[in-house]
Amino acid sequence: MNDTVTKLVNIVFEDAGDSREARDMKEAVLRDCQERFDEMVAEGIDEDEAIAAVVESLQGMEEIVRSLRNVDKEVFEESVQDVETAPQYTRRLKLNLKDTDVHFAMTSGQTMEIILPEGEKERFHVENQNGWTCITEQEYTVERMDWYNLFSGIRTLMDMKQVLQKIGNYVQERVHSGDMTIKVPAEYLEEVQIHVVNGDISWEKVGCPQISIQGTNGDIDLDTAMHGNSLQISMVNGDAEVRADYETLNMTTVNGDMEVEGTFEHVSMKSVSGDLDLDLIGTDHAEVYMKSTSGDIHVGLPSGTERVRAKMHSISGDMKCDFPSGEDAPFRIEIQTVSGDGTID
């Protein structure tokens, strides 16, 4: 961490305000500048020249900083939307959540119903944007902790107890919030994009041709109804269980097991330390790519499969591929394992 680089970025973002967007951008830009500096120095370039390059890359930030400052104001000025009187929802849904579980379920009604967690409604901002219904979970912006002054007035044990109480309340408010439920008719949704930090996602018997889920901590349980184009899931820590019918399935996880059952034409499942289990049913032809660094891989193929091309890579896990017996179909399997066992039945 070079001090000058940090100072430069601090100066640039001095008047950017304190919104989540501003803080995120500042951290990302700081990282970019640090990497630029470090790489140049590593190549033997003079530190001063590297700093000059960083300065040059930071030119022209005034406009975006100005607009970030205004974001802060928007957060306070916008009124809370009452769900009942909200504008008609579109069929494209975008969720941007921090600490909330989401359930998708079928409704007997005609349109989408968004049920926000009890007692937390103010933290969710629902609006239509560019043809998307966007639900964004906001951080608490009202009460700030004045960390510096918090500790400076402690004289007695009683003072200390009060401070700890304050910290306790602060933490309490920020732990996991409630559940959100989205109820839609079975074939209502056209595209869904979910971005969640901590939260599980469950999806029951509702269809959507294009789903993209990205999460950091949370489990995923999907049981989709109709045939769709593309299902993408990307998790850091969390297990995924999927029953679906898509043309393309793309799943990656760092720590987490993935269990998939369904009909797909193109499958890609990647995990660092989780097990991968794929059960293809009713597939005519498919291309499968599975890679796990330290987990086991299992693929099951249905009888009547005409053409399957599968590539399975594992560094230290075991791999198992089940073929239906007595079939004469062209299979092309490529298995690469470094220290695990590979079995083809």
Partner: peptide, 18 residues
Amino acid sequence: AGLIVSYWGGEQQGARRR
């Protein structure tokens, strides 16, 4: 515009990559 999505990298030290 829904053309990209973003997430934080898991860097342990210093500023994280977006």
